[in-house]
Design a protein around this nucleic acid. Structure first.
Lengths: 236, 236
DNA sequence: TCAGACTTCTGGTCTATACCAATTAGCCAG
DNA sequence: CTGGCTAATTGGTATAGACCAGAAGTCTGA
């Protein structure tokens, strides 16, 4: 049972990776050569690699091979510090690419904000990077009356900052949901990973201090690239 | 690329499961019979099943086969409502089994609470069930001076309730961390699943209102059995 | 020097098969 | 009906080999 070869292989690979991380510059040797080195099949080798992938030690990019995963980004979804700020605060390099700007209806957003099913939203879709690795894609659905000219002026900055400073919205009530998932083919492609890769879905519904709906957003993270951290003090 | 057969198979299985959920009483047919039905190999069939497993639609128990996963439990790790309470509030049946009671040092707990490495703790290890399915194992590490006779009187009730009511502790400062993981062989065995199954690690360090360390705990959940939900309002 | 075509390498997918060990189902005796 | 043994079933693991398409590296000609 627990004497399965692929589990031993997993351990051997783990130490091998530790030792040669610098030498390999973050990229593992080809599967075929690793399989040969351990005198096994690619199938079994891949089973072991998948274990390490689930642990978050390594990951693969498209068809380019296996890479050693960098340290996880620490992220507090309850704070509205901008992505750029807290990535830099951890000594990493953030980047954002805007993938889509449009206005249309979206059922999950409508449901989450208690609006009619055909309610239109300003939709922003963007991909975020840490040190040039794409780690998440997200879709933001903003109630148009809260930010009328949003799509004309948006160029990749912090949306919550805009909502607060330009339109004076007070993002008072946030309802946050986190679920592990398998990335959809669409999300996976935008993140340059295989469809079905493990991910984490974080979505928020945001209302102002008078319970008026403002925004709904949905983030799809690579599971190995973040560590969620929440600090609570005082009340209750 | 996206025309892979196992992805189509995944979709076919998804609808097949939807249709026959009641008929099968929660347990899928044998892999060999499913593979035959779809005229493919067990290898490919298992690849498709693994996809659905990652999505959280199905799961497997030990060597007993594939089962349809029940709805996720909604869980707010920032509240200290007892497990039993919120499981019942969702119309499910909770159960707890105490696996171990001991006093010893534990490095991660000491680190998290800023105590010396050799600091001893009262250690409680328990397994929790929802509707008779084991969904998590957890270890609690309590500073002995905060609850001297804990191990003598503990019989499976709410630990936080005890700390509050019996010893008058005010659990004011909580630092929570959530990370996806692959379940260790030990955790996996205690949950009756295969080693390396996808899981979610939730750990908390708890201090009182004067920053005195009280407790550290670490939960290992099956990834498909929970939906984390946090509600925030007002401040900031 | 450089863009573009060609070749090689490599990961992604799939088939076919086999053995083991744990679970389950069936059978039999008490 | 029950307890225990046996046999069939089934999931977990592993081998060996194959093809494809994308990525990377190489060569060529302008």
């Amino acid at each position: 049972m627990s004497d399965a070869y692929y589990l031993k292989l997993t351990e051997q690979l783990r130490t091998l990776i530790d030792q040669n991380a610098a030498l390999w510059e973050g990229k593992l040797p080809a599967e075929r050569s690793l399989a040969e080195r351990f005198a096994t099949t690619r199938v079994t080798l891949r089973q072991a690699l998948s274990q390490l992938e689930m642990e978050g030690l390594i990951h693969r990019s498209n068809r380019r091979g296996w890479f050693i995963s960098p340290a996880r980004l620490v992220y507090d979804p309850t704070r509205d510090a901008g992505f750029n700020d807290y990535v830099r605060a951890q000594g990493r390099q953030p980047r954002t690419a805007v993938l889509k700007l449009e206005t249309r209806a979206h059922l999950p957003a409508a449901r989450a904000l208690n609006l009619p099913d055909d309610q239109p939203f300003h939709h922003i879709r963007r991909r975020r990077y840490v040190d040039d690795r794409a780690v998440l894609v997200e879709s933001l659905w903003v109630v148009p009356t809260c930010a009328p000219e949003l799509l004309d002026i948006y160029t990749g900055q912090s949306l919550w900052g805009l909502l607060r400073e330009r339109w004076g919205h007070y993002l008072a009530n946030r309802s946050i949901r986190m679920v592990s998932e398998a990335l959809s083919p669409i999300d996976a492609e935008e993140l340059l990973v295989a469809p079905g890769t493990a991910g984490l879905n974080i979505s928020r519904a945001i209302l102002d201090d008078q319970q008026r709906p403002i925004e709904f957003d949905e983030e799809h993270w690579l599971h190995d690239s973040l560590c969620i951290s929440v600090e609570l003090s005082g009340q209750r």
